[in-house]
Amino acid sequence: MPMNSSDLAEQSIVLQVVIGFLYPFMLLLGFYVILNGHYTPGGGFQGGSVLATLLVARYVVSPREDINSEELHRYQRIFLALILVAPAVVLFPGFLHSYPRIRPLYLTVMDLLIGVQVGFGVGVAVLRFAFFEGTGKTWRL
């Protein structure tokens, strides 16, 4: 059955309104969970999952292909490289032992890196499946 994205966008007013209302709060919650990872429960992975949920919610409300998953994937790889480099530069040579002042900074930065990496990564993975729709003809049962 031929369906284009405008058909989908017109569906489910409830979902659109609720997600539109929750969107900024979820963004705030995501960054709160990431940045407060070393004080309260939470951290990079959990906050990153909230960010990925945001991306998927955005897709559910308006399923246009305006999220460039190639771009997201590139950023994810950059953040992953930073995740691999930062401990190798800061943690493993023992700088945290000699300079205790940078310990909270290191924790915050690592949480942020992991959060964005996980958010982009899971978002790309889920959107990749979501956009995997073919033309309708292929999926007709």
């Binding site: 990872g37 070393h38 004080y39 309260t40 429960p41 951290g43 990079g44 401990p87 943690l91 493993f92 945290l96 205790p100 310990r103 909270p104 290191y106 924790l107 690592m110 949480d111």
Partner: peptide, 17 residues
Amino acid sequence: DTAAHNAIAAILLNYRM
């Protein structure tokens, strides 16, 4: 050791990096 107030963050980001 790590200035984290949350043991799990300390383990994830320092002890078991």
